[in-house]
Design a protein around this nucleic acid. Sequence first.
DNA 1: TCCTTACGCTACGACCCGTAGCGTAACTGC
DNA 2: GCAGTTACGCTACGGGTCGTAGCGTAAGGA
Lengths: 209, 209
Amino acid sequence: MLSRSHPKPPRTGRPRSAAADEAILEATRASLVDLGWSKLTMSDVATRAGVAKTTLYRRWAGKNELVVDAVAVLFDELELPDLGSLSADVQAVVLQFAALLERPETQTALMAVVAESTRDEALRTRIRDSIVDRQKRLVLQGRQRAQERGELPVEQDEDAASTTADLIFDVIAGAVVHRALVSAEPVDADWARRFTVLLLTGLGAAASA
Amino acid sequence: MLSRSHPKPPRTGRPRSAAADEAILEATRASLVDLGWSKLTMSDVATRAGVAKTTLYRRWAGKNELVVDAVAVLFDELELPDLGSLSADVQAVVLQFAALLERPETQTALMAVVAESTRDEALRTRIRDSIVDRQKRLVLQGRQRAQERGELPVEQDEDAASTTADLIFDVIAGAVVHRALVSAEPVDADWARRFTVLLLTGLGAAASA
DNA sequence: TCCTTACGCTACGACCCGTAGCGTAACTGC
DNA sequence: GCAGTTACGCTACGGGTCGTAGCGTAAGGA
Protein backbone atom coordinates (compact mmCIF):
# COMPACT_ATOMS: atom_id res chain seq x y z
CA MET A 1 0.00 0.00 0.00
CA LEU A 2 2.26 2.77 -1.15
CA SER A 3 0.30 5.90 -0.47
CA ARG A 4 1.72 7.75 -3.39
CA SER A 5 -1.77 9.18 -3.34
CA HIS A 6 -2.36 11.30 -6.37
CA PRO A 7 -4.69 13.91 -4.91
CA LYS A 8 -6.95 13.74 -7.96
CA PRO A 9 -7.49 10.29 -9.39
CA PRO A 10 -9.50 11.18 -12.50
CA ARG A 11 -12.58 9.07 -13.08
CA THR A 12 -12.41 9.33 -16.82
CA GLY A 13 -9.91 8.10 -19.37
CA ARG A 14 -7.73 5.01 -19.39
CA PRO A 15 -6.67 4.00 -15.89
CA ARG A 16 -3.05 3.46 -15.02
CA SER A 17 -1.90 -0.11 -15.14
CA ALA A 18 -1.40 -1.48 -11.64
CA ALA A 19 0.52 -4.37 -13.17
CA ALA A 20 2.97 -1.92 -14.68
CA ASP A 21 3.42 -0.29 -11.27
CA GLU A 22 4.43 -3.57 -9.68
CA ALA A 23 6.56 -4.60 -12.64
CA ILE A 24 8.50 -1.34 -12.44
CA LEU A 25 9.14 -1.61 -8.71
CA GLU A 26 10.20 -5.21 -9.06
CA ALA A 27 12.48 -4.30 -11.96
CA THR A 28 13.96 -1.51 -9.86
CA ARG A 29 14.86 -3.92 -7.07
CA ALA A 30 16.37 -6.33 -9.57
CA SER A 31 18.40 -3.56 -11.12
CA LEU A 32 19.63 -2.48 -7.70
CA VAL A 33 20.86 -6.00 -7.06
CA ASP A 34 22.62 -6.28 -10.40
CA LEU A 35 23.95 -2.78 -10.91
CA GLY A 36 23.78 -0.99 -7.56
CA TRP A 37 22.58 2.53 -6.97
CA SER A 38 25.03 4.54 -9.00
CA LYS A 39 24.81 2.47 -12.19
CA LEU A 40 21.07 2.05 -12.08
CA THR A 41 19.46 3.98 -14.92
CA MET A 42 15.89 4.77 -15.75
CA SER A 43 16.35 3.24 -19.19
CA ASP A 44 17.52 -0.03 -17.70
CA VAL A 45 14.58 -0.24 -15.32
CA ALA A 46 12.16 0.50 -18.15
CA THR A 47 13.64 -2.25 -20.29
CA ARG A 48 13.54 -4.78 -17.46
CA ALA A 49 9.94 -3.93 -16.67
CA GLY A 50 8.92 -4.16 -20.31
CA VAL A 51 7.71 -0.60 -20.19
CA ALA A 52 8.48 2.59 -22.07
CA LYS A 53 10.79 5.03 -20.37
CA THR A 54 8.18 7.74 -20.58
CA THR A 55 5.86 5.65 -18.43
CA LEU A 56 8.37 5.82 -15.58
CA TYR A 57 8.54 9.59 -15.74
CA ARG A 58 4.76 9.83 -15.74
CA ARG A 59 4.74 8.29 -12.26
CA TRP A 60 8.01 9.17 -10.61
CA ALA A 61 9.96 12.40 -10.78
CA GLY A 62 13.28 10.57 -10.98
CA LYS A 63 15.58 7.87 -9.71
CA ASN A 64 15.40 8.98 -6.08
CA GLU A 65 11.65 8.73 -5.69
CA LEU A 66 11.48 5.50 -7.63
CA VAL A 67 14.04 3.73 -5.50
CA VAL A 68 12.48 4.87 -2.24
CA ASP A 69 9.18 3.34 -3.25
CA ALA A 70 10.84 0.19 -4.53
CA VAL A 71 12.68 -0.41 -1.26
CA ALA A 72 10.10 0.85 1.21
CA VAL A 73 7.91 -2.21 0.96
CA LEU A 74 10.77 -4.43 2.16
CA PHE A 75 10.78 -2.69 5.53
CA ASP A 76 7.22 -3.72 6.25
CA GLU A 77 8.41 -7.28 6.82
CA LEU A 78 9.88 -6.34 10.20
CA GLU A 79 7.91 -7.59 13.15
CA LEU A 80 8.42 -7.70 16.88
CA PRO A 81 7.82 -11.21 18.16
CA ASP A 82 6.85 -11.54 21.81
CA LEU A 83 9.61 -13.68 23.24
CA GLY A 84 8.81 -13.06 26.89
CA SER A 85 11.52 -10.58 27.80
CA LEU A 86 12.67 -7.18 26.65
CA SER A 87 16.16 -8.50 26.09
CA ALA A 88 14.99 -11.29 23.80
CA ASP A 89 12.69 -8.97 21.90
CA VAL A 90 15.45 -6.45 21.25
CA GLN A 91 17.87 -9.10 20.07
CA ALA A 92 15.27 -10.53 17.71
CA VAL A 93 14.45 -7.22 16.09
CA VAL A 94 18.12 -6.34 15.76
CA LEU A 95 18.75 -9.58 13.90
CA GLN A 96 15.74 -9.01 11.67
CA PHE A 97 16.91 -5.53 10.83
CA ALA A 98 20.39 -6.83 10.12
CA ALA A 99 19.02 -9.48 7.77
CA LEU A 100 17.21 -6.74 5.89
CA LEU A 101 20.41 -4.73 5.59
CA GLU A 102 22.26 -7.73 4.18
CA ARG A 103 20.09 -7.74 1.10
CA PRO A 104 22.04 -6.02 -1.67
CA GLU A 105 19.11 -3.92 -2.82
CA THR A 106 18.61 -2.30 0.56
CA GLN A 107 22.32 -2.04 1.25
CA THR A 108 23.10 0.05 -1.79
CA ALA A 109 19.86 2.02 -1.82
CA LEU A 110 19.29 3.04 1.76
CA MET A 111 22.38 5.16 2.34
CA ALA A 112 22.19 6.61 -1.14
CA VAL A 113 18.68 7.96 -0.83
CA VAL A 114 19.45 9.32 2.63
CA ALA A 115 22.44 11.11 1.14
CA GLU A 116 20.26 12.61 -1.56
CA SER A 117 17.65 13.61 0.98
CA THR A 118 20.05 15.98 2.70
CA ARG A 119 19.49 18.37 -0.21
CA ASP A 120 15.88 17.55 -1.01
CA GLU A 121 13.22 18.32 1.54
CA ALA A 122 10.46 16.50 -0.35
CA LEU A 123 12.55 13.38 -0.62
CA ARG A 124 13.33 13.53 3.08
CA THR A 125 9.67 13.53 4.07
CA ARG A 126 9.01 10.79 1.57
CA ILE A 127 11.66 8.60 3.21
CA ARG A 128 10.42 9.52 6.64
CA ASP A 129 6.82 8.64 5.83
CA SER A 130 7.39 5.44 3.89
CA ILE A 131 10.39 3.96 5.71
CA VAL A 132 11.62 5.51 8.93
CA ASP A 133 8.47 6.35 10.84
CA ARG A 134 6.97 2.95 10.15
CA GLN A 135 9.70 1.29 12.16
CA LYS A 136 9.14 3.37 15.25
CA ARG A 137 6.09 1.24 15.91
CA LEU A 138 8.53 -1.51 16.89
CA VAL A 139 10.03 0.63 19.62
CA LEU A 140 6.65 1.71 20.95
CA GLN A 141 5.37 -1.86 20.88
CA GLY A 142 8.44 -3.21 22.64
CA ARG A 143 8.25 -0.59 25.32
CA GLN A 144 4.61 -1.26 26.02
CA ARG A 145 5.23 -4.96 26.41
CA ALA A 146 8.17 -4.33 28.69
CA GLN A 147 6.04 -2.04 30.83
CA GLU A 148 3.34 -4.68 31.06
CA ARG A 149 5.95 -7.16 32.21
CA GLY A 150 7.26 -4.68 34.75
CA GLU A 151 10.66 -4.47 33.06
CA LEU A 152 10.36 -0.75 32.41
CA PRO A 153 8.71 2.00 34.47
CA VAL A 154 5.63 3.70 33.05
CA GLU A 155 6.54 7.27 32.23
CA GLN A 156 4.01 9.89 33.20
CA ASP A 157 5.17 12.78 31.07
CA GLU A 158 3.88 12.14 27.57
CA ASP A 159 6.42 14.34 25.83
CA ALA A 160 9.36 12.89 27.70
CA ALA A 161 8.21 9.39 26.85
CA SER A 162 8.01 10.27 23.18
CA THR A 163 11.46 11.85 23.27
CA THR A 164 12.89 8.76 24.91
CA ALA A 165 11.33 6.53 22.26
CA ASP A 166 12.92 8.61 19.54
CA LEU A 167 16.26 8.35 21.28
CA ILE A 168 16.05 4.60 21.57
CA PHE A 169 15.04 4.29 17.96
CA ASP A 170 18.05 6.28 16.80
CA VAL A 171 20.36 4.25 19.00
CA ILE A 172 19.14 0.86 17.84
CA ALA A 173 18.72 1.63 14.16
CA GLY A 174 21.87 3.74 14.06
CA ALA A 175 24.05 1.17 15.74
CA VAL A 176 22.90 -1.65 13.47
CA VAL A 177 23.27 0.41 10.32
CA HIS A 178 26.70 1.66 11.35
CA ARG A 179 27.92 -1.81 12.21
CA ALA A 180 26.56 -3.36 9.01
CA LEU A 181 27.33 -0.67 6.44
CA VAL A 182 30.05 1.59 7.79
CA SER A 183 32.14 -0.80 9.85
CA ALA A 184 31.05 -3.49 7.38
CA GLU A 185 31.21 -6.24 9.94
CA PRO A 186 28.60 -8.90 10.59
CA VAL A 187 25.66 -8.33 12.88
CA ASP A 188 25.45 -11.84 14.28
CA ALA A 189 23.76 -13.30 17.34
CA ASP A 190 26.76 -12.55 19.53
CA TRP A 191 26.89 -8.90 18.53
CA ALA A 192 23.15 -8.59 19.06
CA ARG A 193 23.53 -10.04 22.55
CA ARG A 194 26.35 -7.69 23.48
CA PHE A 195 24.52 -4.72 22.08
CA THR A 196 21.37 -5.59 23.99
CA VAL A 197 23.27 -5.88 27.25
CA LEU A 198 24.78 -2.47 26.63
CA LEU A 199 21.43 -0.95 25.78
CA LEU A 200 19.64 -2.36 28.80
CA THR A 201 22.22 -2.09 31.54
CA GLY A 202 24.70 0.55 30.36
CA LEU A 203 28.38 0.80 29.79
CA GLY A 204 29.83 -0.26 33.09
CA ALA A 205 27.88 -3.48 33.18
CA ALA A 206 28.45 -4.22 29.51
CA ALA A 207 32.21 -4.18 29.85
CA SER A 208 32.11 -7.07 32.26
CA ALA A 209 29.50 -9.15 30.46
CA MET B 1 48.57 13.95 5.81
CA LEU B 2 46.58 12.04 3.27
CA SER B 3 48.51 8.87 2.86
CA ARG B 4 47.51 8.38 -0.73
CA SER B 5 51.03 7.03 -0.80
CA HIS B 6 52.10 6.35 -4.31
CA PRO B 7 54.34 3.40 -3.71
CA LYS B 8 56.93 4.75 -6.12
CA PRO B 9 57.46 8.48 -6.03
CA PRO B 10 59.84 8.83 -8.98
CA ARG B 11 62.89 10.96 -8.34
CA THR B 12 63.11 12.21 -11.86
CA GLY B 13 60.82 14.37 -13.98
CA ARG B 14 58.55 17.22 -13.06
CA PRO B 15 57.05 16.73 -9.60
CA ARG B 16 53.35 16.90 -8.98
CA SER B 17 52.08 20.25 -7.81
CA ALA B 18 51.16 20.11 -4.13
CA ALA B 19 49.33 23.38 -4.59
CA ALA B 20 47.13 21.76 -7.21
CA ASP B 21 46.40 18.91 -4.81
CA GLU B 22 45.12 21.28 -2.18
CA ALA B 23 43.26 23.44 -4.69
CA ILE B 24 41.44 20.38 -6.02
CA LEU B 25 40.41 19.14 -2.59
CA GLU B 26 39.27 22.61 -1.59
CA ALA B 27 37.33 22.95 -4.84
CA THR B 28 35.74 19.58 -4.21
CA ARG B 29 34.50 20.68 -0.81
CA ALA B 30 33.17 23.91 -2.27
CA SER B 31 31.39 22.03 -5.01
CA LEU B 32 29.86 19.68 -2.46
CA VAL B 33 28.47 22.66 -0.61
CA ASP B 34 27.05 24.29 -3.72
CA LEU B 35 25.89 21.30 -5.73
CA GLY B 36 25.76 18.33 -3.39
CA TRP B 37 27.01 14.85 -4.13
CA SER B 38 24.83 13.87 -7.06
CA LYS B 39 25.30 17.03 -9.09
CA LEU B 40 29.00 17.32 -8.43
CA THR B 41 30.98 16.66 -11.60
CA MET B 42 34.66 16.22 -12.27
CA SER B 43 34.50 19.00 -14.85
CA ASP B 44 33.10 21.43 -12.32
CA VAL B 45 35.75 20.62 -9.76
CA ALA B 46 38.47 21.04 -12.35
CA THR B 47 37.13 24.42 -13.36
CA ARG B 48 36.86 25.63 -9.77
CA ALA B 49 40.37 24.48 -8.99
CA GLY B 50 41.76 26.14 -12.11
CA VAL B 51 43.08 22.82 -13.28
CA ALA B 52 42.64 20.64 -16.35
CA LYS B 53 40.24 17.75 -16.05
CA THR B 54 42.97 15.33 -17.03
CA THR B 55 44.95 16.36 -13.97
CA LEU B 56 42.16 15.11 -11.74
CA TYR B 57 42.14 11.73 -13.41
CA ARG B 58 45.91 11.45 -13.07
CA ARG B 59 45.49 11.47 -9.27
CA TRP B 60 42.08 10.03 -8.51
CA ALA B 61 40.27 7.17 -10.17
CA GLY B 62 36.95 8.97 -9.98
CA LYS B 63 34.43 10.96 -8.03
CA ASN B 64 34.24 8.50 -5.14
CA GLU B 65 37.91 8.50 -4.27
CA LEU B 66 38.21 12.24 -4.73
CA VAL B 67 35.38 13.03 -2.35
CA VAL B 68 36.63 10.63 0.31
CA ASP B 69 39.97 12.41 0.37
CA ALA B 70 38.35 15.84 0.30
CA VAL B 71 36.18 15.08 3.31
CA ALA B 72 38.55 12.90 5.32
CA VAL B 73 40.65 15.76 6.53
CA LEU B 74 37.64 17.34 8.23
CA PHE B 75 37.36 14.40 10.57
CA ASP B 76 40.80 15.01 12.00
CA GLU B 77 39.45 18.04 13.85
CA LEU B 78 37.70 15.84 16.38
CA GLU B 79 39.33 15.75 19.76
CA LEU B 80 38.46 14.35 23.13
CA PRO B 81 38.86 17.03 25.78
CA ASP B 82 39.47 15.82 29.32
CA LEU B 83 36.51 17.24 31.20
CA GLY B 84 36.98 15.19 34.32
CA SER B 85 34.26 12.60 33.89
CA LEU B 86 33.30 9.98 31.36
CA SER B 87 29.86 11.48 31.04
CA ALA B 88 31.17 14.92 30.21
CA ASP B 89 33.70 13.53 27.77
CA VAL B 90 31.08 11.55 25.88
CA GLN B 91 28.73 14.50 25.65
CA ALA B 92 31.50 16.70 24.33
CA VAL B 93 32.57 14.32 21.60
CA VAL B 94 28.96 13.73 20.59
CA LEU B 95 28.44 17.44 20.12
CA GLN B 96 31.67 17.76 18.17
CA PHE B 97 30.68 14.96 15.90
CA ALA B 98 27.24 16.49 15.44
CA ALA B 99 28.76 19.83 14.50
CA LEU B 100 30.81 18.08 11.86
CA LEU B 101 27.71 16.41 10.46
CA GLU B 102 25.93 19.74 10.21
CA ARG B 103 28.37 20.96 7.62
CA PRO B 104 26.76 20.53 4.20
CA GLU B 105 29.85 19.03 2.62
CA THR B 106 30.05 16.17 5.09
CA GLN B 107 26.31 15.72 5.22
CA THR B 108 25.90 15.06 1.53
CA ALA B 109 29.17 13.21 1.04
CA LEU B 110 29.41 10.82 3.95
CA MET B 111 26.33 8.72 3.31
CA ALA B 112 26.91 8.79 -0.43
CA VAL B 113 30.39 7.34 -0.33
CA VAL B 114 29.31 4.73 2.19
CA ALA B 115 26.52 3.77 -0.19
CA GLU B 116 28.99 3.43 -3.02
CA SER B 117 31.36 1.43 -0.86
CA THR B 118 28.83 -1.36 -0.50
CA ARG B 119 29.73 -2.42 -4.04
CA ASP B 120 33.40 -1.40 -4.05
CA GLU B 121 35.80 -3.19 -1.79
CA ALA B 122 38.70 -0.83 -2.48
CA LEU B 123 36.59 2.20 -1.69
CA ARG B 124 35.44 0.57 1.55
CA THR B 125 38.97 0.10 2.81
CA ARG B 126 39.82 3.63 1.72
CA ILE B 127 36.96 5.00 3.82
CA ARG B 128 37.89 2.75 6.68
CA ASP B 129 41.51 3.83 6.69
CA SER B 130 41.07 7.54 6.16
CA ILE B 131 37.87 8.21 8.09
CA VAL B 132 36.36 5.50 10.26
CA ASP B 133 39.32 3.93 11.98
CA ARG B 134 40.81 7.28 12.88
CA GLN B 135 37.85 8.04 15.09
CA LYS B 136 38.15 4.87 17.11
CA ARG B 137 41.06 6.50 18.87
CA LEU B 138 38.50 8.67 20.63
CA VAL B 139 36.78 5.63 22.09
CA LEU B 140 40.04 4.05 23.20
CA GLN B 141 41.22 7.30 24.71
CA GLY B 142 37.98 7.88 26.53
CA ARG B 143 37.96 4.38 27.94
CA GLN B 144 41.49 4.64 29.21
CA ARG B 145 40.77 7.90 30.99
CA ALA B 146 37.62 6.44 32.51
CA GLN B 147 39.57 3.46 33.74
CA GLU B 148 42.19 5.71 35.30
CA ARG B 149 39.42 7.57 37.08
CA GLY B 150 37.92 4.30 38.24
CA GLU B 151 34.72 4.86 36.30
CA LEU B 152 35.16 1.72 34.25
CA PRO B 153 36.66 -1.65 35.16
CA VAL B 154 39.90 -2.70 33.49
CA GLU B 155 39.16 -5.61 31.21
CA GLN B 156 41.62 -8.45 31.28
CA ASP B 157 40.75 -10.21 28.07
CA GLU B 158 42.36 -8.24 25.28
CA ASP B 159 40.06 -9.52 22.53
CA ALA B 160 36.93 -8.89 24.53
CA ALA B 161 38.08 -5.36 25.28
CA SER B 162 38.65 -4.68 21.60
CA THR B 163 35.25 -6.09 20.70
CA THR B 164 33.62 -3.90 23.31
CA ALA B 165 35.36 -0.84 21.96
CA ASP B 166 34.09 -1.59 18.48
CA LEU B 167 30.60 -2.00 19.84
CA ILE B 168 30.69 1.31 21.66
CA PHE B 169 32.03 3.03 18.60
CA ASP B 170 29.21 1.74 16.43
CA VAL B 171 26.65 2.75 19.02
CA ILE B 172 27.90 6.30 19.44
CA ALA B 173 28.70 7.08 15.84
CA GLY B 174 25.64 5.25 14.58
CA ALA B 175 23.23 6.98 16.92
CA VAL B 176 24.55 10.44 16.12
CA VAL B 177 24.54 9.85 12.38
CA HIS B 178 21.06 8.37 12.47
CA ARG B 179 19.69 11.21 14.54
CA ALA B 180 21.30 13.88 12.39
CA LEU B 181 20.86 12.49 8.89
CA VAL B 182 18.07 9.93 8.92
CA SER B 183 15.73 11.32 11.55
CA ALA B 184 17.00 14.74 10.50
CA GLU B 185 16.53 16.24 13.93
CA PRO B 186 18.99 18.36 15.86
CA VAL B 187 21.70 16.85 18.01
CA ASP B 188 21.68 19.49 20.72
CA ALA B 189 23.03 19.54 24.25
CA ASP B 190 19.87 18.05 25.65
CA TRP B 191 19.90 15.12 23.26
CA ALA B 192 23.59 14.54 23.99
CA ARG B 193 22.84 14.47 27.70
CA ARG B 194 19.99 12.00 27.32
CA PHE B 195 22.02 9.81 25.03
CA THR B 196 24.94 9.76 27.42
CA VAL B 197 22.72 8.75 30.31
CA LEU B 198 21.36 5.92 28.22
CA LEU B 199 24.80 4.79 27.19
CA LEU B 200 26.26 4.83 30.66
CA THR B 201 23.41 3.52 32.78
CA GLY B 202 21.12 1.67 30.40
CA LEU B 203 17.52 1.73 29.41
CA GLY B 204 15.75 1.37 32.71
CA ALA B 205 17.61 4.26 34.26
CA ALA B 206 17.37 6.43 31.17
CA ALA B 207 13.60 6.33 31.10
CA SER B 208 13.40 7.97 34.48
CA ALA B 209 16.10 10.59 33.94
C1' DT C 1 -20.00 6.65 -30.24
C1' DC C 2 -17.28 10.58 -28.37
C1' DC C 3 -14.17 12.04 -24.86
C1' DT C 4 -10.37 11.57 -21.94
C1' DT C 5 -6.34 9.66 -20.29
C1' DA C 6 -2.48 6.10 -20.47
C1' DC C 7 0.74 3.76 -23.23
C1' DG C 8 4.61 2.62 -26.60
C1' DC C 9 7.72 4.37 -29.71
C1' DT C 10 11.02 7.55 -31.84
C1' DA C 11 13.79 11.35 -31.89
C1' DC C 12 16.16 15.05 -29.89
C1' DG C 13 19.52 18.57 -27.51
C1' DA C 14 22.05 18.80 -23.49
C1' DC C 15 25.26 17.12 -20.46
C1' DC C 16 28.93 14.28 -18.32
C1' DC C 17 32.16 10.55 -18.72
C1' DG C 18 36.90 8.90 -19.36
C1' DT C 19 40.65 8.81 -22.71
C1' DA C 20 43.95 10.00 -26.46
C1' DG C 21 47.05 13.07 -28.57
C1' DC C 22 49.95 16.93 -28.60
C1' DG C 23 52.86 20.77 -27.30
C1' DT C 24 54.77 22.93 -23.28
C1' DA C 25 56.64 23.32 -18.43
C1' DA C 26 59.48 21.80 -14.55
C1' DC C 27 62.86 19.21 -12.44
C1' DT C 28 67.10 15.75 -12.36
C1' DG C 29 71.39 13.64 -13.67
C1' DC C 30 75.24 13.86 -16.74
C1' DG D 1 74.27 23.67 -20.43
C1' DC D 2 71.86 19.51 -22.36
C1' DA D 3 69.16 15.32 -22.60
C1' DG D 4 65.84 12.50 -20.28
C1' DT D 5 61.65 12.08 -17.71
C1' DT D 6 57.44 13.25 -15.87
C1' DA D 7 53.51 16.65 -15.07
C1' DC D 8 50.47 19.94 -17.00
C1' DG D 9 46.96 22.37 -20.05
C1' DC D 10 44.28 22.06 -23.94
C1' DT D 11 41.40 20.07 -27.54
C1' DA D 12 38.71 16.61 -29.36
C1' DC D 13 36.23 12.46 -29.36
C1' DG D 14 32.79 8.23 -28.93
C1' DG D 15 29.68 6.56 -25.72
C1' DG D 16 26.28 6.91 -22.50
C1' DT D 17 22.27 9.01 -19.69
C1' DC D 18 18.99 12.54 -18.99
C1' DG D 19 14.36 14.39 -19.44
C1' DT D 20 11.06 15.97 -22.91
C1' DA D 21 8.24 16.43 -27.15
C1' DG D 22 5.43 14.53 -30.61
C1' DC D 23 2.69 11.09 -32.55
C1' DG D 24 -0.42 7.20 -33.22
C1' DT D 25 -2.75 3.69 -30.63
C1' DA D 26 -5.16 1.33 -26.56
C1' DA D 27 -8.47 1.27 -22.74
C1' DG D 28 -11.69 2.79 -20.07
C1' DG D 29 -16.17 6.25 -18.87
C1' DA D 30 -20.45 9.24 -20.12
